[in-house]
Design a protein around this nucleic acid. Structure first.
Length: 226
DNA sequence: TCAAGGATCCGCT
DNA sequence: GCGGATCCTTGAA
């Protein structure tokens, strides 16, 4: 919860600076949390979750998207916060450019597979469609999902293990400025963990700042049919 | 070594 | 609103 409102900062070697307000997170805590990557114990992938706090844990989901987490508990206790959405504050055009690069690369790969299956399909057409879509996005939507945060900020698994609390780090987290708009936080169940048994599946460990145009307010209740 | 499935996003219906 | 893309990680053999 303390992360909501904090700033995610990316400084590239060329001096480009991207920054945004963290507006949606999810908590994954301990080996007992059967929704967490730590549920199988310590493995090659999740090793940094068992390390000291403040470190970046980046993993690949669905074979396509990198997701950024912040390790939270002291060494030996595996826990991390998944950063699900960031509201851009600075460097939004650099984010847009990074989103374009990532999406175009995916579109070209996909176009190549399709060409093998069902005949010619111009890479240029796929590329143009992707560029139009990304260029039409409002700034608030540029990092409105865990995979999109990584795309927009240029985060990859190579960044896993970085110290996010080091002021000299090219990828880091800073406190919200004192005059910042105060967040209003809603909670809800975590997303995409249907494989987890109860109570883990329903624990309200997802936190959203509903003052942000980047995220939609959580639905409070499931309406009864009829 | 193998087979299964995923802390997502996008295009198409 | 649904299903495909895509490849890495995992436990089991």
């Amino acid at each position: 919860v303390a992360l909501i409102g904090a700033r995610l900062i990316r400084e590239s070697p060329d001096g480009t600076r991207r920054g945004g307000r963290i507006v949606e997170v999810e908590a994954y805590i301990g080996v007992a949390d059967l929704a967490s990557h730590a549920r199988f114990g310590r493995t090659a992938r999740n090793a940094v979750m068992f390390g000291p706090p403040g470190i970046a844990y980046v993993y690949l989901v669905y074979g396509m998207y990198d997701c950024l987490n912040v390790v939270t508990e002291p060494e030996g206790r595996p826990a991390a916060i998944l950063i699900r959405a960031v509201e851009p504050v600075a460097g939004s055009e650099a984010m847009r450019a990074a989103r374009r690069d990532a999406a175009v690369a995916r579109a070209v790969r996909r176009s190549a597979t399709r060409r093998l299956e069902r005949g010619a399909l111009a890479d240029d057409a796929a590329r143009d469609a992707v560029v139009r879509r990304i260029d039409g996005l409002p700034v608030a939507r540029l990092a409105a999902g865990p995979g999109l945060v990584s795309d927009g900020f240029g985060i990859t698994r190579a960044d896993s293990g970085l110290d996010l609390l080091d002021p000299a780090s090219g990828l880091r987290i800073e406190p919200a400025p004192p005059d910042d708009r105060p967040p209003i936080i809603e909670t809800g169940p975590r997303v995409g963990i249907a494989y987890a048994p109860e109570p883990w599946r329903s624990l309200p460990w997802r936190f959203v700042d509903v003052t942000s145009p980047t995220v939609a307010p959580l639905r409070r209740a499931v309406p009864t049919p009829g």
